[in-house]
């Protein structure tokens, strides 16, 4: 008899357990799992060049159940300012951040100190020393080479003595350094002469004008979107200039002036992919703890007037609906 009541008790306990489990399950279904909060910190966040990137981020956030927060930023003055924002974002409850470091030279360890314990993805550029973090970016050396490739293709056989001025962007970023060296390596031995190289500093248009006055270059090379827009502005202002422009960019302005014929060749990284992939990577990190640092490469398109309206380029180049 005693044995029976023990069995009975055990059975009731099991039933109760199952009931509790089912109740719990019932209350929990429909409720989404915890939503992670990810902040994105990029230089000058409202700039047009981030449109595709934002789109990618949004899609990635929706697909990975992440609450996305693109931090409103203006032009960063330096790494310390950026770090301050990163710190604040973590304090405000961000689970992870996606950062475009405004400088790769993190000598004081500001950046690595800020993010050592956290889920973090770098986009656009790595920081020194390389390979410590997951970075989503294009192969910058290849971008540089591709710009040079476009130039060389257009000027085939006429490269001797061609003068080139380079707007090399933010040379504190590894990415820009690589693009520059990619370009320089590619034009080496072709007779192309680099007459000046301007890094991002001071009043750019005026600087550009003075450079051009001193050492007129036939071709302007821009290694980055903002530089491309700047060169376009310069060319618009200097109506008589016969300069041609090759560069990198993804904003609608850059595309427009490519379409207009002012830019001869444009390298467009698939920033949508960059945004989406960085979101995916950070979701992975948040879900499974830290994943090994790796470079995720983003493809880029080489666009000129001929293939601008190709079906494939259209799909990447133009934001579908705004």
């Amino acid at each position: 008899m005693k044995k029976n009541s023990i069995y009975f008790g055990v059975l009731v306990a099991v039933m109760l357990g199952v009931t509790a489990f089912a109740t719990y399950g019932m209350l929990n279904t429909g409720r989404e799992g915890e939503e992670y909060q990810v902040s994105v910190i990029v230089n000058n966040s409202s700039s047009d060049r981030w449109i595709a990137f934002r789109e990618g981020l949004k899609q990635g956030a929706a697909d990975n159940h992440i609450q996305l927060n693109i931090v409103s930023t203006v032009e960063f003055t330096g790494l310390s300012e950026e770090c301050q924002i990163i710190r604040r974002e973590f304090e405000n409850g961000a689970d992870g951040v996606i950062i475009e470091p405004c400088s790769s030279e993190d000598e004081e360890g500001l950046l690595s100190g800020e993010v050592s314990e956290e889920a973090v993805i770098f986009v656009g550029t790595d920081v020194m020393p390389e390979g410590l973090h997951t970075v989503v970016m294009t192969d910058h050396y290849e971008v540089g080479s591709a710009i040079a490739g476009e130039l060389l293709e257009d000027y085939e056989g006429r490269t001797d003595g061609l003068t080139v001025g380079i707007l090399s962007g933010n040379q504190e970023q590894l990415s820009m350094q690589k693009r520059l060296s990619g370009f320089l390596d590619a034009v080496e031995g072709t007779g192309i002469e680099v007459v000046w190289t301007a890094a991002e500093e001071g009043d750019r248009i005026e600087e550009l004008k003075s450079f051009q006055k001193e050492h007129p270059a036939d071709v302007l090379i821009t290694l980055e979107n903002d530089e491309t827009e700047l060169a376009v502005d310069y060319l618009l202002a200097e109506e008589k200039s016969s300069c041609v422009l090759y560069g990198e960019g993804c904003s609608e302005k850059a595309v427009y002036y490519l379409d207009k014929g002012m830019i001869q060749g444009l390298i467009v990284p698939n920033e949508f992919h960059m945004g989406y992939l960085s979101m995916q990577e950070i979701a992975k990190q948040l879900l499974y703890g830290t994943s090994p640092a790796q470079n995720r490469e983003i493809e880029f398109l080489t666009i000129n007037k001929e293939n601008l309206y190709d079906v494939e380029s259209q799909k990447i180049l133009f934001p579908i609906v705004q």
């Binding site: 009931t19 399950g25 279904t29 429909g30």
Partner: peptide, 16 residues
């Protein structure tokens, strides 16, 4: 899933 849990709960409670 919710329904499944509900059925399990219903069955166990009534079984009890």
């Amino acid at each position: 899933e919710e329904m499944r849990y509900f059925v399990i709960m219903l069955v166990t409670v009534s079984l009890l």
